[in-house]
Every structure is written in C-alpha cells, then in structure tokens.
C-alpha cells in the first residue's frame, strides 16, 4: 500500500488529532452471534455497536466519519479482523465525500483479514470525489481458503446532479485480494482528468457511475460467475458484466448513468451472491 509518486509530489500528509483516523476491529463468535470483541478508534473514524438485521448471528457494523467528509491531509486507516465463524456486514452511514484540496491529498487504507470460515460482506455507500479533490485509496483483503468475501464499491464522477463530472484532480483506487498469501487479483484504477477525460470510449464511455464487486468463496464456481454475468448483460439500463479471473473468485464491473441504476444493479448482484453463498437474500440496509 504505497501511494503513486504523483501523490507524494502534492505535499505531506498531516499527523494530528482529527486528521489521522484509526479504526481497528476484531469480530469473533461470542455465544450464538458475532460480536466486536476488540476495538480501538480515533476520530475521524468511529464505529457504532452492531445490529442484527437478519435476525441471525451476522453482525451489521456501521462505520462513520462524523466530520462529514474527507479533506486534504486526512489519513484514514481501517483494520478489521474476523475470526473463524464470525460473519459481518460492514457498511457506512452515508456517502464518502472527498472535498476540494489546495494542498496535499487524502489517503484511505483499508485492511480486512478473514480467518477460517469467516464471512465479510463489505457494502459501503458511494464515494463522491468533489471538484479539485485528490484521493488515494488502497484496500487489501487477506482470505483463508474457507472464508467468504463480498466487497462492493461505487464511485461517482463527482456531484453529478449539479453537473460536476470528472472535475476531481487525481484519484487512485486499489483493491488487492489474496488467498492464503497468494494474490488472486489486483484492481488499480488511476484517473487524472487533466491527462484525458475519463468519459470517453473505452474508459467510462459516457457514464458517470462505476461500480465494482469482488467475491471469493469456496462455494463460488464458474456456473455462478456465469449467472452473475448474464444478470448484468440482460440489463439495458447499465453496461456491465462479470467474470471469474481465478477459481473461487468473481469480479463485476458496471457503468451506469444514474446512482440509482448503479446501486440497483449492485444490489441485485449482492442478492444473487448472498442467496447462493449464504442461503439468505440481501436486504436494504437501514441508514440511521
């Protein structure tokens, strides 16, 4: 997790209270359900006590940033460990807003470690990079061959409703998934609109929202990845598909014109995977 050189040239990151957020969580089976057995957090990162929206053992955990958004110099580090038998849905309370930056940039580092047959469903709200923002996000997931991961991400071109598209300065988003120490997939998106508009043929075509989903499970086979692909290819409101880059894992990529279309398509994919891998439907997450 090392930012590209283009970021380092923008200036140093702050290391002060309220700027350098830390969140460490350990989730484990405690009697009949998954509980947070260890936690440490420092503003601007915070976590709410878990809820049990499926009315089973799975803990629904909300991460929040009470400062309302990410500003220049912010460094946010989240580290979540799930012990064998733990199952958790991790989400956010609202969209991640990345504000304009005149100096420096902002960094978000996420690390998820799953042991044994742990299940992690990480379904955050969308990320909105405002005009003039500079943002580096790296997410690393370490899996056990027996564990299950569903991770989604939705990126907006900007504040699209007010006509702001690709006005951010630089964005680098990385997802690194490893199983038993071996890298399964590495997805790195680098957008600097000054070097060429992303809304053109081959990049985002003429779309304004980009969704991804990464799934890994011992139960995920080629047939399921095929069903997922067909589900996206049947939809004519979005441009998407899916595939299986390595045994036991699937990726989804989807481009959409509106946030609703992107969210609905990703929700449908989450639902399909949840039914196949966890034997229960997806649910609309309650936002507080």
């Amino acid at each position: 997790m090392r930012a590209p050189a283009a970021f380092a040239a923008l200036g140093p990151l702050a290391d002060q209270i309220g700027k350098s957020g830390v969140l460490r969580l350990c989730l484990a089976r405690d009697r009949e359900r998954t509980a947070i057995v260890d936690q440490y957090w420092r503003i601007p990162l915070q976590v709410l006590p878990p809820s049990y929206q499926d009315e089973d053992d799975e803990a629904f955990v909300y991460l929040l940033n009470p400062t309302g958004g990410i500003v220049q110099g912010d460094r946010l580090c989240t580290d979540v460990t799930l012990m064998p038998g733990a199952r958790s849905v991790i989400t956010t309370q609202s969209a991640a807003k990345i504000y304009r930056m005149d100096e420096s940039y902002a960094v978000e580092l996420n690390r998820y470690t799953l042991h044994g047959d742990a299940v992690l469903e990480c379904v955050p709200d969308q990320t909105i990079p405002f005009a003039g923002s500079r943002f580096y996000r790296a997410t690393r997931v370490d899996l056990d061959p027996a564990s299950t991961l569903i991770l989604t991400d939705l990126l907006a071109a900007g504040r699209v409703a007010r006509g702001e598209r690709f006005a951010f300065e630089r964005l680098f988003v990385e997802v690194d998934v490893r199983i038993a120490g071996e890298r399964l997939l590495l997805d790195r998106l680098n957008l600097a609109p000054a070097d060429g508009a992303p809304d053109r043929l081959g990049l985002w075509n003429d779309h304004a929202y980009y969704g991804t989903l990464y799934a890994c499970s011992p139960r995920l086979d080629e047939a399921l990845a095929g069903v997922l692909a067909e589900m996206f290819e049947r939809r004519d409101d979005v441009y998407g598909s899916a595939g299986q880059p390595a045994p036991g894992c699937a990726i989804v990529r989807v481009l959409a014109r509106t946030t609703w279309q992107a969210r609905e398509a990703l929700f449908e994919a989450w639902d399909l995977l949840r039914r196949a891998l966890l034997d229960k439907p997806a649910r609309e997450l309650r936002k507080l």
Binding site: F172, R188, L189, L203, Y210, Y239, S241, L255
Partner: peptide, 10 residues
C-alpha cells in the same frame, strides 16, 4: 502499474 479502461474490461 494500473489499468483504467473500465468499459474495455466490461
């Protein structure tokens, strides 16, 4: 190293 051609990937 990176690849940013989302629509070409799709």
């Amino acid at each position: 190293l990176h690849a940013s051609t989302v629509a070409q990937d799709i």
